[in-house]
Design a protein around this nucleic acid. Sequence first.
DNA 1: GATGAATGAGGGTTCATTCAT
DNA 2: TATGAATGAACCCTCATTCAT
Lengths: 227, 227, 227, 227
Amino acid sequence: MVESEESTSVLARILDAAAEEFGRVGFSGAKVDAIARRAGVNKAALYYHVGNKEKLYETVLLQLFAQVAGTLEQAAKAGPDPVAALSALASAMAGLFSRLPVLPRIMTMEMASGARTMPLAALAEFRRIFGATRDILRQGQETGVMRPANPAFVHMALVGTLVVYSLSEPLRRRFADAVQEMDVRLDAPLAEAAAFLGDLIGRGLRPDAAVGETPVNTAGTEGHGDA
Amino acid sequence: MVESEESTSVLARILDAAAEEFGRVGFSGAKVDAIARRAGVNKAALYYHVGNKEKLYETVLLQLFAQVAGTLEQAAKAGPDPVAALSALASAMAGLFSRLPVLPRIMTMEMASGARTMPLAALAEFRRIFGATRDILRQGQETGVMRPANPAFVHMALVGTLVVYSLSEPLRRRFADAVQEMDVRLDAPLAEAAAFLGDLIGRGLRPDAAVGETPVNTAGTEGHGDA
Amino acid sequence: MVESEESTSVLARILDAAAEEFGRVGFSGAKVDAIARRAGVNKAALYYHVGNKEKLYETVLLQLFAQVAGTLEQAAKAGPDPVAALSALASAMAGLFSRLPVLPRIMTMEMASGARTMPLAALAEFRRIFGATRDILRQGQETGVMRPANPAFVHMALVGTLVVYSLSEPLRRRFADAVQEMDVRLDAPLAEAAAFLGDLIGRGLRPDAAVGETPVNTAGTEGHGDA
Amino acid sequence: MVESEESTSVLARILDAAAEEFGRVGFSGAKVDAIARRAGVNKAALYYHVGNKEKLYETVLLQLFAQVAGTLEQAAKAGPDPVAALSALASAMAGLFSRLPVLPRIMTMEMASGARTMPLAALAEFRRIFGATRDILRQGQETGVMRPANPAFVHMALVGTLVVYSLSEPLRRRFADAVQEMDVRLDAPLAEAAAFLGDLIGRGLRPDAAVGETPVNTAGTEGHGDA
DNA sequence: GATGAATGAGGGTTCATTCAT
DNA sequence: TATGAATGAACCCTCATTCAT
């Protein structure tokens, strides 16, 4: 395993290039030729290192999943306050997606294709991912600041929203002007969406018991433009 | 839908088959051969009717978009209560996705590929789609039952969540057993998720002025990073 | 045979369109679709009138050949002076090619493809075509103003030159500027070329014995190439 | 040409096969399949080496043009006598066409199609080709053995005739018997035609001044070609 | 006679993969 | 290990031709 001195290992370069390409055009749209070129290696060399296209895809997938799991876990145990932890989760996810825009793209493409390729090894990562949300909710309930909820739902509300928001960026950017006059801001950054989302879900999960009011009509009254 | 099974117009049959195929494997993964076979027409006939693969895709996309827009609009004006309307929106969307599982798949794949193919004609549908959420929020604020929020965010929270939840079905089903012991129910039906989501967002959008109860996180959006 | 009142017969329109198309891209390059469109008739109608592509081609060919033969014959018997007749032949050919630029194109394409399609019916036209030149030469010899020569050679010198000159027009036009500084005028009109050619061949066919003048082979002192 | 029969470079074999095929049926009639088979290579290999059909055609064209140019140049500078050089030019051309019967076919087909494909790189060859004839004529005039004439005309008379004569071989052969009784020998070899042609043009270009007789038709030619 | 729709047989091109060096 | 070259299996698309109306 004597790697070339001056740069990242060949395999790492291949994986990066592959992630980029898979994220751009999906599995069947990706061309091994393009990946090899992007990685700066010969096509035959790629096969020597990776085996074949399918295996390459699996490897990329696993690597990305591990990153997601790690990030979520990290964020989940960030603080003692479950509500804050939820927001932290959203922010962490947004940060991850910003740094690795390929991630939400590959995730959804993979899901859209029926998780055809998802290797069994992904199971462990899967548990870690859902575990993060589950732990926060459990703690929230135990401390009485959250009502019970299926972690799968909350997780999807969090991650699903951010995934689609991130994913839709080109589309939103393209139509941003067209809906401007509708008071819809399509080009807000992902971090802002995450902040809003963390807050929204935090509020939405408050226990009913809170009291019985919800004193309608005091704050909102005027328009929408302000904060 | 209206015509008798086998007398459906050729073009309609082609479009249905294409939606199915595109939804299953994406644009580049779809094979015109397969679409033609599935539609029960000769491949050359398909080209005679549709032009080429790209055009076929665009047509499918437009048709699906129109359905989404129609459904959302319908649901949005369902009742006078904005909060209920929001839930109705979620339910309608869930119903649509259940009947047309191909829809969320194609939508995300299209977005994931950078909205490469989205025809300009989709613009109108796009406005209708965002308009539905926007109208509800506006009304909610005007009647004082909701605080201001960027409709794009709320829309994404609603649709994005349902899309990913629907999308992830095969994956969730596959790993359902594996996380059962974690108190995470991965196999809840989409409608249930929609109900939860409508409720969650409705609560989350309640005006801050909810007096002094539910003391959590009253600061709104500014307090998320820490405790 | 009741033709449409307001225009040329359908078949004539088809033949014209076909000639145009065949001349532009050759037999295999021509598309029946394009011919039908150009002729303003339905594709199936074209088949009804013509049979198939091959037959259409043969018909066009025969029609064009007949025009060439007629023109040459006409020109050949134009006057009593063989030398003038030769020039007349060249001019007539040039005129024909100018009016029907498709003619030289189809002629050469047909020859280039090994006269694959040339129908036997073309034989008669063929004899008329060569007959014209042959008659002039024979008369020239009999009146002593021309030396003997294989009519096939002379014919080729005449027609071949004009065919290629006509054919090369787009090419010459394209490179005209590039060779201007070389004292080569590539854009001279076909008629001018014909005039030059008639003259050139007329001179070239003068009998050696043309008395003692036309200092055959004396001026060039070192004349090795000729007789 | 230099390498041993079967070890010829793959690309060379492809180009040869392509020239043969293009010459036989033209660009659109040629099938890549057939070319690959004839060259003894896999179709994909052909694409690997050449890019696509169009590029293949261009390459073939350029190669052929270069051969023509080289041959003409060589012949043009063969001797000091312009009249002899003209004959040498004709002979060289005939020799080239005999060895490469594909050449006149491709040349005319290309011209007939409007020089659609002629790459700009052909420009240089083009200049060399016309330059040969031009140089001979210029020298002929300077030494007083030729009258002024547009080199383009002379060149066409020379090359055009030989091209069509060569091209028409199958046709001539097919109808040779039919015109035999007409004193027209259709099956004379190309070399003979070239000899006749060289002589014919040589004579035809003799200066009028030679003596004073036979002032045929001098009007048309004097306008353009002089220096 | 005319027309929209259908169809089978390719035709050009791409692509994942392998092999010899 | 790395690389240029090769290959077979598709894949998208076209085209001459026919058929039902």
